[in-house]
Design a protein around this nucleic acid. Structure first.
Lengths: 152, 152
DNA sequence: CTATATAATTCAGCGATCTTAACTAATAAG
DNA sequence: CTTATTAGTTAAGATCGCTGAATTATATAG
């Protein structure tokens, strides 16, 4: 990687941190959701069907911890938990409508600064940013696809 | 904002979430730092001189909470806490070398996927992404500057 | 000098999450 | 059928961070 791009990435990371982390934590506190809950919510909103151990691996905690966390979220009506017909030891975790709503709000809150930022660009600049981000999104999909199909 | 750009931002947000949140939480657990600690660490690494109440406002918690959290971080050698000569009620919080090291590692860990992603781009694509990100960084500085100079 | 306001700390108590260990249920292997 | 493995749950105990209230020290106002 060329040195100037390396610096750009670093600056971009800093900007991301400074603007999204605080927003995210404040949002969590205001809505009375813990950070683990909100993280689980967002993970579930991106990976439609998860099980307990998958979440445990994702966040680096035991199944017991996930089970307890999810139990509360089921009671709060954020998550629907059902048996997997293929293997009834598995639980299939899916967000409820309410859960999806909260997850989306959380994401919007976290990246609000990015939307605000883009709104002050000229049309030409918007196009430039749009194509660059789309390029990254497409490349990321290429990296993800081979792996995401290799389990179950 | 044009509809296609709006979708691009949304996709980009999703990608960010999916790839950085898990890394970040795993990093925190592996290194035995709590999420609040790591968040404080990162905030301090971006805003060289902070006081207790400033951090409290940033994260939406009481001064007592910040004081206790920082006390631990001082004991761990991550933060240097000293009196403000201008107003000795204030404490000036600055990261130690060790604290800075951890903060940087955390940021690198969190955005590792972005570096990996950029590494598979062609030179031409890299230039494209570089200029788009730099554009956003510059615009963000314009938004921030008026505010960031208004205190102390 | 006295009174008030501000910044930070300390303490007791609460709630949340984590871990380990024991347990139930379902699947896979012999 | 018996045994071992896998997925998830439950319970007990520990830790952590937060709050509210009381306290100390500094700064400002009258």
């Amino acid at each position: 990687m060329s040195p100037p791009l390396e610096k750009t990435i670093k600056d971009w990371m800093n900007l991301n941190m400074r603007n999204s982390l605080g927003n995210f934590m404040r949002f969590a506190r205001e809505k009375n959701y813990s950070l683990p809950q909100l993280s689980a919510l967002i993970h579930l909103s991106q990976n439609e069907e998860c099980n307990i151990s998958g979440l445990g691996t994702e966040f680096g905690v035991t199944n017991a911890a996930v089970s307890q966390l999810l139990e509360k979220m089921v009671q709060q009506g954020l998550v629907h938990r059902s048996e997997d017909p293929q293997d009834r030891r598995n639980k299939v975790l899916v967000l409820t409508e309410e859960g999806n709503k909260i997850a989306n709000e959380g994401m919007i809150e976290r990246h609000k600064w990015l939307s605000d930022l883009i709104n002050i660009l000229t049309e030409e600049e918007k196009d430039h940013v749009d194509s660059a981000l789309r390029l990254l999104i497409d490349k990321a999909a290429l990296l993800d696809d081979p792996k995401s199909q290799s389990e179950s």
